[in-house]
Design a protein around this nucleic acid. Structure first.
Length: 419
DNA sequence: TCTGGGGTCCTAGGACCC
DNA sequence: TCTGGGGTCCTAGGACCC
């Protein structure tokens, strides 16, 4: 059996832990630049705020319902996630952290356990120790555990936040209830095509012929179908090193000048280099892209990306910035309006076994230099030391007007209590 | 009428997840 | 005026190798 644990409205729940006055009120959390809604409390959902809603289009609705609004506070959410995961880790030897707010637990050899009660115990413990409410779905396969979780979330009172699919009757009932577009692995494109074929429920999908599923959705879809039928095809994914690391941003305004864009791309490359060093990797390939504003069809829609094979694997900010800026030079076109850009480090390898090359003359001083820069920034605050090509005055001009304190990760911002 | 067999690597495109 | 960021996997086709 597998359990899927999902934190309810995770980012909103994190904000509520430290401000219980938000309980029962409509709350939303916004993306970077305070652009879109990326998390909503149940009250905000009932008020008719959709996922991904652009904040500026919903200002009136926010005011009318007195919605509490927060800028995304990822250090806080990441820290709360670690706490939740470490509690769940105590329930089973095999766990996969699937996302910041979800984990699969493999319950192999738990035949004599009362899984329903175990689910309730998870809910009680996580709630008690972190303040985060969770839902638990338990079933014979991962895809069915996802379905069970959805039921627990949809009917919190009837299920007391835990639902177990352990009989054929329950499986069929659940799949007949679940709309096909809500199945894990069936996105909007596939859902539209399935519906045009009069396949409307998850159950209908499981009754399709294997060949049709495969021709429509490849082997991925076929695995999903069998998993939903109760034949396990999806196992826990082991944590493996990431395959790419990206820093990409939408700008707060349109950029037109090369110099401005160059500064941003340099900062993104430098950020990628830092992320690489944190996990002890180097990259062999770099991708740089720019594009215009897809919401403004009246402006020229120029966009381009370029992939650069590096002559040697590296995680030095100096090297990566140099290559990224050079790549930008190849795709920059003047007279265009740029709204977004990014740098993606690909083809990663551990820095420990970097292949040396007799023909490339790397400056060995970069390694201790980067280590020193990282140490200074760790003690005195991010971005205290950066490359000259980055704007020295720019702290991080992201719009974050409603940021909550970093309660758990910065000693100067811990919770204050008025007595 | 007949036209080998078995591979790799790369790219672009399409789908999905949170 | 303002519309997020970071990932994964699979397939098909084209090029190459012996």
């Amino acid at each position: 059996m597998f359990a899927l644990i999902d934190c309810n409205n995770f980012y909103v729940s994190c904000e509520r832990v430290f401000d219980p006055g938000l309980m029962g009120k409509p709350v939303v959390v916004l993306s970077n630049n305070d652009g879109c809604v990326i998390a909503r409390s149940n009250e905000a959902k009932s008020a008719g705020i959709p996922m991904g809603a652009p904040a500026f289009k919903y200002e009136k609705l926010f005011r009318r319902h007195n919605v509490r609004i927060f800028s995304a506070n990822f250090p806080l959410y990441g820290d709360m996630s670690n706490r939740v995961m470490s509690i769940l880790d105590g329930f089973t030897p095999e766990m996969e952290i699937y996302s910041i707010d979800e984990a699969f637990l493999k319950l192999k050899g738990f035949g004599n356990f009362d899984l329903q009660s175990m689910g309730w115990e998870m809910h009680r413990k996580v709630g008690r120790w972190t303040g985060i409410p969770i839902s638990v779905g338990i079933a014979p396969t991962k895809a069915l555990a996802k379905v069970a979780n959805r039921i627990a979330k949809k009917f919190p009172h009837r299920t007391k936040n835990v639902y177990l699919i352990d009989t054929e009757e329950k499986r069929v009932k659940a799949l007949k209830w679940l709309p096909v577009e809500d199945v894990w692995g069936i996105g909007s494109r596939y859902a539209a095509r399935l519906k045009s074929m009069n396949i409307n429920r998850a159950f209908d999908f499981t009754k399709m012929e294997d060949n049709r599923v495969k021709s429509l959705m490849s082997v991925v879809g076929l695995r999903l179908k069998h998993d939903l039928q109760g034949v396990p095809r999806l196992d826990l994914n082991e944590v493996q090193p990431r395959k790419s690391i990206a820093t990409t941003r939408t700008f707060e305004k349109h950029y037109t000048r090369y110099e401005e864009l160059k500064e941003r791309v340099a900062a993104f490359a430098s950020s990628c280099a830092e992320k690489l060093r944190v996990e002890g990797s180097c990259c062999n390939t770099l991708m740089v892209f720019v594009h215009g504003n897809r919401h403004r069809p009246d402006l020229p829609q120029y966009g381009k990306s370029v992939v650069v094979k590096l002559p040697f694997p590296t995680n030095s900010s100096i090297e990566l910035v140099k290559f990224a800026v050079c790549a930008l030079g190849n795709i920059f076109k003047s007279g265009c309006y740029y709204k977004k850009a990014g740098v993606i480090a690909m083809d990663l390898c551990p820095e420990k076994n970097v292949q040396l090359n007799i023909f490339t003359n790397r400056d060995p001083r970069h390694i201790p230099l980067m280590r020193t820069v990282d140490r200074i920034n760790a003690s005195f605050g991010q971005q205290k030391v950066k490359l000259a090509v980055q704007d020295p005055n720019r702290i991080w001009k992201m719009k974050q007007e409603r940021l909550s304190p970093r309660y758990t990760t910065n000693i100067n911002e811990i919770i204050t209590i008025n007595t």
